[in-house]
Each structure stands twice: as structure tokens, then as C-alpha cells.
Amino acid sequence: MGFVDVLDVVDVMILLTKSSKEAERYILVGHNLTYKQLIENFASKLGAKVPKRRAGKGLLNFFRSLDYLSALILGRKQTLFKDSVRSLCRRAYYSSEKIKDDMGFKFRPLSETVQRLASDYSKES
């Protein structure tokens, strides 16, 4: 799955508004990671335990069904959807080579992004 720091998105938007490029489309992905890798990165920065069990597609669909029923019975919004489960179980790779080649852009290191977000999360907790 592709992830990008919001600060990188803002930097690219500013860079593109100052450039002569027109009618171009760019994919912004700083890092291609699995959800497991992402969780491990955040857990290490937050000093939290990394989950030991893998939630497979069957288990996720079971929880999606429970979420649907509880939303129906309790009158609240559903939070886990079929597309979410599909996304969690699929591996996808995205390339940002075009923005790197066209504009010479360099994405922030993952460690910097995770550290900033973990720090922000810790402040709010």
C-alpha cells in the first residue's frame, strides 16, 4: 500500500504551482509498505507492543459483519466496509518516479514522518 506524508503533498503542490507544468498528473507515494510494516513502525516509536496475530480476510469479514449488525441495531454508522477489508488484504505498489524525474522531488524519510506523527499522537493522549 502506498503512503505519503501530508507535508510532502503540500511541498509538491507548492512546487507545481511555481513550475511551468500544466495538465500533468502525478502519483505521490513516499513509501510502499504493508499494513504490518506500518503498524510495526508506529508501535516501535510509541513504545507499544506489536500485534502478534494476523487478522486474515475471513476474520476481518467476520468483524465487518459484526460491525454492520451493531450499526443496524444501535443506529450508528458502520466503520468497517468490504472495500476496507479488500484493501487491508491486498498488496499494491505505486510509483512516484514521474514527480521525482520531472521535478527532482525527494520524499521525507519514513522514520521522520513516523516520529513526527507518533510525537503528535503522544501529546494528544
Score class of each variant (00 low, 15 high):
F62D: 07
D101K: 15
C89H: 02
R91S: 15
F62H: 05
L59D: 03
T79W: 10
Y35M: 01
I39G: 02
L7W: 10
V4K: 04
A55K: 05
A55I: 10
R108C: 13
K36Y: 07
K100Y: 04
V10Y: 09
L59I: 14
D102M: 08
S44K: 14
R76M: 01
R86Y: 12
D83K: 10
C89D: 06
Q78D: 00
L72I: 06
N32H: 06
R90I: 06
Y94L: 13
D102P: 12
L74F: 08
F107S: 07
F42G: 09
G56M: 07
T34G: 02
R91Q: 15
N41A: 14
F3H: 02
Y93W: 10
F42P: 13
D8P: 00
S65N: 06
L33S: 04
Q37V: 04
P51Q: 03
H31F: 02
V114S: 11
L88Y: 09
F42W: 01
S87N: 10
H31Y: 05
G75V: 04
D11S: 15
E22G: 08
N41S: 14
I27Q: 05
T113L: 11
K100H: 07
S19F: 01
V50G: 02
M103Y: 04
V12K: 03
C89L: 07
D83P: 09
D83V: 05
I14R: 12
D67K: 02
G30Y: 10
S125G: 11
K57V: 09
L59Q: 06
G75Y: 00
S96F: 02
P51N: 01
L110D: 10
N41Y: 12
I14H: 12
K77M: 10
Y26K: 00
V4I: 15
A23S: 14
A92K: 12
E97W: 05
P51K: 06
E22Q: 13
A92H: 10
K36Q: 05
A71F: 00
T113K: 11
N41H: 14
S96L: 02
E40N: 14
D11A: 15
M103L: 13
V12I: 14
E40M: 13
